[in-house]
């Protein structure tokens, strides 16, 4: 799939992307909650070939006493890539990238979790990237948010994430690995749409101010669609549990 030789053409003559998608088209997104038995909440999220598993344990007594805070729960978050998730095997030891992403993912969820309800406890979010094809951090935010909801942790809103990018000069939604690697910019965004809050925003690459606004608008339109899908996923899961007449 990924060749190290020539840079591929990313936008075709008909204006479609190399993967056949329109500029504002998401990959097929699949979401499932309650996929793990032991975790208090869990979710499996796929953005095309990107596949991410999130598990939530807690609120529970902190593993380490000194991390507890007297007036709220602490969030602990680990973003981790499985060794087989990438083209070349990835060492399971945490990389600098994973350390940074664990932080920005945690900070994308802090604004929505009602942590004050669980003082002196810990809410642990474990994210495993099982297969990486671009957009893993934003799929992780979506998965973590669903897993928190599945664990019954009170939240002010669900956070959804998506990455936009600039490829061959065009701003496109939900970039995959090839578009990220050969594109000019990668901008992951996560937001709580009902609160009108942007909770994660990064940019790797170069954009003019106009391109930035366009990218942010496109990301938010994708996020609103994913947010609808998340609500539907949770609704279905809990509609299945019907009280018998």
């Amino acid at each position: 799939m990924v060749s190290t030789s020539e840079r591929p053409r990313l936008i075709m003559e008909d204006g479609r992307r190399y993967n056949g998608r329109a500029y504002d088209e998401l990959r097929p997104i699949r979401m499932q909650v309650g996929v793990l038995n032991n975790a208090n909440g869990s979710a499996l999220v796929e953005y095309g070939r990107t596949k991410v598993l999130a598990a939530v344990y807690g609120p529970r007594e902190p593993q380490l006493k000194h991390v507890s805070i007297p007036y709220r729960a602490v969030l602990r978050c680990r973003y981790h890539m499985a060794p087989f998730s990438t083209h070349d095997r990835k060492s399971p030891a945490p990389s600098r990238r994973e350390v940074e992403l664990s932080k920005v993912i945690r900070e994308s969820l802090e604004p929505v979790v009602v942590s004050e309800m669980f003082p002196r406890t810990s809410i642990d979010i474990f994210i495993e990237v099982l297969n990486a094809d671009g957009g893993t951090r934003t799929a992780s935010v979506t998965a973590a948010s669903l897993a928190l909801a599945d664990a019954g942790i009170p939240m002010k809103d669900l956070v959804a994430g998506v990455a936009v990018g600039k490829v061959d000069g065009v701003i496109v939604l939900d970039i995959d690995e090839v578009e990220d690697m050969y594109g000019e910019a990668d901008m992951p965004v996560a937001a709580a749409p009902s609160l009108n809050l942007i909770t994660l925003l990064q940019l790797n690459g170069v954009l003019t101010p106009d391109e930035f606004k366009k990218s942010l608008d496109l990301a938010l339109s994708g996020i609103r669609r994913i947010h609808e899908g998340m609500k539907e996923t949770l609704r279905r899961r809990y509609l299945e549990v019907k009280v018998e007449e």
């Binding site: 802090e110 942007i198 909770t199 940019l203 170069v206 954009l207 606004k213």
Partner: peptide, 22 residues
């Protein structure tokens, strides 16, 4: 041009605040 962005810290920003910050 903008050559990088990082929201850093626990809170969040509104859409309008992000554009104003930019």
């Amino acid at each position: 041009r903008i050559s990088g962005i990082q929201k850093s810290g626990m809170g969040a920003l509104t859409y309008e605040e992000v554009l104003k910050a930019m």
